[in-house]
Amino acid sequence: MDEKALQLRFQEQIDAEIKIEPKDWMPDAYRKTLIRQMSQHAHSEIVGMLPEGNWVTRAPTLKRKAILLAKIQDEAGHGLYLYSATETLGISRDEMIQALHSGKAKYSSVFNYPTLSWADIGAIGWLVDGAAIMNQVALMRTSYGPYSRAMIRICKEESFHQRQGFDILYTLCQGSEEQKAMAQDAFNRWWWPSIMMFGPHDAESTHSSQSTKWKIKRKSNDELRQDFVDATVQQAEVLGLTIPDPDLKWNEERKHYDFGAINWEEFWTVVKGNGPCNRERIAARQKAYDDGEWVRDAAAAYAKKHTHAYPSTSTS
């Protein structure tokens, strides 16, 4: 079959909602787009462990510490799962990690903001995971099979993450004046970065139209953003927190909340590497990788020396 016929059959498969699987023929650009998006997604999970890890040793109670550890562990698991799904497209985990460290691959910019108080852990769960879920729920129907299946699995855990974030803030909002102030302060700092997580407006989004045609993307940036704002405003009311946007108001005609202008200058500043923590995040990942090199080498050497990779054990 010639290239054109393959292209045609591929698009028919997409239009008929039949998932594309690793061994199916696919256009190079489709493969590249997926590698870019899926590895970026995997990197976001891994880099996203860092701002939360910043509070794991200072969690206020044993129960909160256990929940936070479990949550961060979930994220590591999501990263692992997404790296594996991306490897089905013919790229290795090592290559993806190199691209992250060199700055060639991106990750969600929201993780370049610092976690300054315990309430930030609540805000990340509620807002950042909440925004991620909007995106990921739409991606459960994405056209590439391994990505779609990864999303279905990941979404189940993410909704638990969002609830635990909300629960942290709810507890703070029922607490002392200091705790309420802590919650409001975190909300003030995380609201706009969360709104920005959906990316540029549809008119300015470079990858959107082709991705929509290929059904990699099932909802536009602005649609997802609106869904998120509508859902979150009501939850903020339950918490008793004030949305840090004087222009936010219900629009009866649209049946949606209107909200103020997004500071795109800040968005692009952070995307381009000049957010508050970009350098620290990549430095932390690079350090873990470099420090781990002798460990990975030793494990490989051991596996080579011994016929099977797992050492004998006296305890099981």
Binding site: I46, M49, L69, K287, D291, E293, V295, R296
Partner: peptide, 10 residues
């Protein structure tokens, strides 16, 4: 947490 030598060990 987040600083292990590889994801699996993390």
């Amino acid at each position: 947490c987040g600083h292990g030598p590889a994801l699996e060990q993390d």
